[in-house]
Simulated scan of single mutants.
Amino acid sequence: MKPHIGVLGCGWLGFPLAKRFISMDFRVSGTTTTKANLDILGNEGIVPYYVELHNEGAKGSLINFLKDIDILIINVPPKRKETEQDYLSQMTQLYEASKIMHLKKIIFVSSTSVYGEVEGEVTERSVLKPGSDSAKQLVAAEKLFMGDKDMEATVVRFGGLLGPDRHPVTYLAGQHELSNGDDAINLIHIDDCILLLTSVVTNQWWGKLMNGVYPDHPTKRIYYTKEATKRGLPVPEYTKGYAGKTGKIVKTKTLDALKFKFMNPIDSHS
């Protein structure tokens, strides 16, 4: 029998991910922080649960959600205004609840922001240099789950996310004197995020650390100029760069066998 999947956080990524697992004949439970969305999840065949994580404890049905699943996918990023202690407290509660329910297989959705604003190539083996509060929060949460030898936790660090209703060029269009035009982009389309996460389950890639980023890394100047032109948006203007500057280039040492749907962000047409 296929394992029962639990998606904690059925939002922009989690909801279509849950639906993809259902299309693959998995049993799927999913959580939402909005009670009005329970029927939406249920109508898609997702067993719906209302769960909110707070410092003082979880609201809703966290234990009921966890008790019947075999694999937990944690798709709950830090909030921008949340302190590191708040997020870590919530993830600690989730971790302890998962231990009580004897969950062994965990997928933690993280971000390449944990590498910080460094220059040059980074891989899963690189030293982490988180600069922002949210990146520091993610590092702490990653260590919490991966540090438990009784769990088979896999961490997937996604780059910038693209999708039919989400593209960074919409925020950059028409801006002037942007200073990072020679930096490389590190992006991935939602379809390939879902491909990667489902592949962890179907291939049983447990206890792994993975960067989820396309292998193609054009400069921001080239990429966003093309994307703005394609959409009929004002082209963002970048200042003259510095010779040899590339910004952060995220590579992966663990996903050579995975064939992305688009392979590069220009082909994604999102």
Rank of each mutant, 00 (worst) to 15 (best):
V155E: 00
S29D: 04
G247M: 00
D267M: 09
G9E: 02
S61T: 11
V47Q: 13
M263D: 15
R231V: 09
H269C: 15
L178F: 12
D86H: 08
I5L: 08
Y223P: 01
D183E: 14
N55F: 10
P164C: 14
Y224P: 02
G181H: 04
V118M: 03
I73Q: 02
L88W: 11
S179Q: 13
K99M: 10
V169I: 03
T83M: 01
I106A: 06
K220G: 06
T92L: 09
D183W: 11
F21L: 03
Q85S: 13
G120W: 07
H4Y: 14
G207W: 01
I188S: 05
G160A: 13
L196G: 02
L94C: 04
P164W: 12
L53E: 01
T252N: 11
P168W: 07
S270P: 12
A97I: 05
V118H: 04
G11W: 00
H4S: 09
D192A: 00
I194P: 03
A257E: 12
V235M: 13
Y50L: 04
K245E: 10
G60A: 07
D150H: 08
I106D: 06
G181R: 01
G45Q: 05
Y49H: 11
L187C: 05
L17W: 02
E237P: 09
Q93P: 14
K99Y: 11
L233T: 07
K261I: 13
W12D: 09
G45C: 10
Y242W: 12
E119F: 11
H176E: 15
L138I: 15
Y49I: 08
Q93F: 13
G30C: 11
F21H: 03
I71T: 01
I249D: 10
K208P: 03
A58L: 07
C10L: 06
S134K: 09
G14N: 03
E142Q: 06
V201Q: 00
G57W: 06
E84N: 06
L195M: 05
R166D: 06
N43E: 13
Y49R: 07
S110Q: 03
V28M: 04
D148G: 04
L255T: 08
G212M: 00
H102K: 15
E237Q: 15
K220A: 02
G9T: 05
A243F: 12
F262C: 12
W12K: 05
I194Y: 06
D192F: 01
L103C: 08
L258A: 07
I249Y: 12
F262P: 06
G247D: 01
D256Y: 10
Q90R: 13
Q137S: 14
L41G: 06
I222Q: 15
Q90K: 11
F108C: 02
F26I: 10
D25G: 03
D70K: 10
S89E: 05
N75E: 07
K35S: 11
K251A: 11
L38P: 07
D182E: 13
D183I: 07
H189F: 02
S132H: 09
V7W: 00
Y214R: 03
P236K: 04
G116H: 06
T254Q: 09
E117M: 13
S199H: 12
P265N: 08
I40D: 12
R231C: 08
M151D: 03
G60Q: 06
I46S: 00
K104D: 10
M151H: 05
N211S: 02
K2I: 10
F260P: 07
K79P: 08
K248C: 01
K79F: 13
L178K: 08
V47T: 14
G212L: 00
L38S: 06
T112P: 00
G212R: 01
G247A: 02
I185L: 04
G207H: 03
